[in-house]
Design a protein around this nucleic acid. Structure first.
Lengths: 209, 209
DNA sequence: GACGTAACCGGACTTTACCCCGTTTCTGTC
DNA sequence: GACAGAAACGGGGTAAAGTCCGGTTACGTC
């Protein structure tokens, strides 16, 4: 009857109970984040509320940041799908400069909407946040820059820096814990507009020939 | 006899013993960082090695990150002096675009040389790193952009994004714990050159009229 | 030089991320 | 349906950040 949507999940690797527990933990985590805010979600609390042992939580996610990474990954995948196979200007097919601009707009919105989780997904030791960050943005920007044939030297470094310009403000340099209603004078939407427009200016200037 | 170099340190605020302990802690911290790496410096260890109580350490610096911030602050001040009152092209007096480029080069080098401490100066909770980050770079870039009279819309946001392009790679997106000898294939100097050149490209493109 | 106050000191205490390992549960095979 | 091996589970244990408060010490005043 309830045949699984995915015919064979991960062939030999991952037991059914493990998968189930992963889901339970992810759901519980989402609920706790919504309720308490990401920074008040503790591993003990999560385990207890999910009805599981602490060891299980760590086995599944390795580290506290791992939980938030896992949470992001799911949404990140949908985002990447849109970028890689959606309609233009975001998806393939349009002018690369337009795609760069559209990508920045979409990414800005994506990160701002999730910045609490994104920030929580950083490891305190260890270098790069494995899922967020330039791991997708960098290469994607790099590809579009190449397609745009702007004659730029060292597109590798440049795309890293552009990715940083795009993601840094949301991840690093912005007030993280704006209480639910937003900040005085500048809501999240306004901020998103400002950043998106700034990105567009940046790209237009760089692409100008 | 040994009259203090600074005639009156901080007029009424800060007792002599407190100041002395601050110095001791800062020195000890520097030594421990050099010896163990920033990430292995613990508050207990620092207190014990400095011959002080843990309470004292926290009273002085508030938080673990505070120690690294204090360490950076001293050097940051020297850096800012050079920028604000040194000779051109970094200091005032030259063409603003040249100053922007020179600033980026200097800042890149500064951050790369100190990225271990800079990364350790982040608070785990709480939003912005109060001393590092765009608190100096942002406004400075903003000022130079304005002087360059490039007709850019919203220089506030743009300078935030440029500051992020400049500092992000060193602070966020780089392998932090390169063991003392550096990484295979790309030493820190090479990396600095790449980032500095990338920054220059960025600025030149944006400034092109 | 004695005194009162305020700041400082120390270390025990709490909280939280993360580890370890004996025990339980699953899954494929006979 | 029972077995064996492997993987997952659980919760107590450790380390390190950060808090608290009673006792102590420095500094300005008389």
């Amino acid at each position: 009857m309830d045949s699984p949507l995915v015919p064979f999940g991960r062939p030999p690797t991952e037991r059914a109970d493990a998968a189930r527990n992963r889901e339970v933990l992810l759901c519980t985590a989402r609920a706790m984040i919504a309720e308490l805010g990401a920074e008040h979600v503790t591993m003990d609390g999560l385990a207890e509320r999910a009805g599981l042992g602490k060891g299980t939580v760590f086995r599944r996610f390795g580290t506290r940041a791992g939980i938030f990474r896992a949470l992001l990954d799911a949404e990140e995948q949908r985002f990447q799908c849109e970028v890689l196979s959606g309609p233009p200007p975001l998806g393939p097919g349009g002018d690369p400069v337009d795609r760069l601009i559209a990508y920045g707009r979409a990414r800005t919105r994506f990160l701002l909407e999730r910045h609490e989780i994104a920030r929580a997904s950083f490891e305190r030791k260890g270098p790069v946040p494995p899922a967020v960050g330039p791991n997708f943005s960098g290469p994607h920007i790099r590809m579009l820059l190449a397609q745009a044939a702007l004659g730029l030297p060292d597109p590798d470094t440049l795309s890293l820096q552009l990715a940083s310009a795009l993601e840094g403000p949301a991840l690093l340099f912005l007030v993280a814990d704006l209480p639910p209603e937003g900040r005085a004078g500048c809501g999240q939407d306004d901020l998103g507009t400002l950043l998106a427009d700034g990105w567009q200016t940046l790209i237009e200037r760089i692409a100008r020939r």
